[in-house]
Design a protein around this nucleic acid. Structure first.
Lengths: 146, 146
DNA sequence: TTATTTTCAGACAAATTACTCTTATTTATT
DNA sequence: AATAAATAAGAGTAATTTGTCTGAAAATAA
């Protein structure tokens, strides 16, 4: 099941990586991120630029440059990242791709899907990356293939 | 959110259309399906060929030909259709695309995602197209854009 | 000041998905 | 037998996603 595009997957991995660091004050370079997460450097560059332009991360050029979070990790939720990388309507659509599918004019799968979709949406709305960063650090959760 | 490819979306719509018909004994032509559902004829042809090769529908050439369900609608579940059109592993993957993500080696989102994913999977396993077909017929649920 | 390290910007290329076209084959009707 | 209506098969095209490359600009350090 490909819920997210690669852009989002890599973007999430990168932001979660940063959120899992002890010291979030200093910049992390794209090179380090791409090496540690095994993501194509140039592709990741594009993704971080997009996150930077949308104020999820701030970037700094030159020596010791890189990206860091624009605000406290606990104030950044997963949905903000997805909204940037997939668009703000990501968690809204119909599973059969019918426009204006809702309780008034539902498709045959609307009842099943809307519930699942809204559950997923609220997880993404209510989960901040500080808690995830801590879990990664403390429980050794992984962000890359073995 | 683009959960399914267009192939699956159109395939589901077409099969649900057939399941919603009063008389499921006679063949429905691809032309009728593509007209009524506003799906590209040639693209739908491909999708139905694939469903036909995988015994979801059986097809018949020539005059009065077309496709019909291979078995009783109540014996066809949504997951069978998706398994053909997206592959049998569709409801299994990790949301961060990590291979072998499970309780042993989870990604940071595994707990959230696995539950939602399995809920969705069991809906697709346990919903047959007869019940959906009836709902479409009785409640006038729609399968196309307004 | 110069060299090095970094992001920024935009063009380019490959892969996948979505869709189209053409020809052949089968079946039923006249 | 001839014609028309339908699917089958496979090649071809367009659009989108994914990934690559190059050169410029900025910041820091020597």
């Amino acid at each position: 099941m490909k819920l997210f595009s690669k852009k989002s997957v890599y973007g999430l991995r990168a932001v979660l990586y940063i959120a899992s660091l002890e010291n979030q004050q200093q910049y992390v370079s794209t090179l380090q991120l791409s090496n540690d997460l095994k993501i194509s450097f140039h592709f990741l560059t594009k993704i971080l630029q997009s996150l930077s332009q949308n104020n999820i991360v701030s970037s700094h050029r030159g020596r010791n440059g890189g990206v860091s979070l624009t605000k406290q990790a606990k104030k950044i939720t997963l949905i903000e990242i997805i909204s940037v990388l997939e668009g703000p309507e990501f968690f809204n659509g119909c599973i059969l791709c019918l426009p204006d599918c809702d309780n008034e004019m539902p498709c045959p799968l609307h009842n099943y899907w809307a519930e699942i979709r809204d559950d997923l949406k609220s997880i993404f709305e209510n989960t901040n990356i500080e808690e995830l960063g801590e879990k990664i650090r403390n429980d050794g959760l992984r962000l890359m293939p073995v």
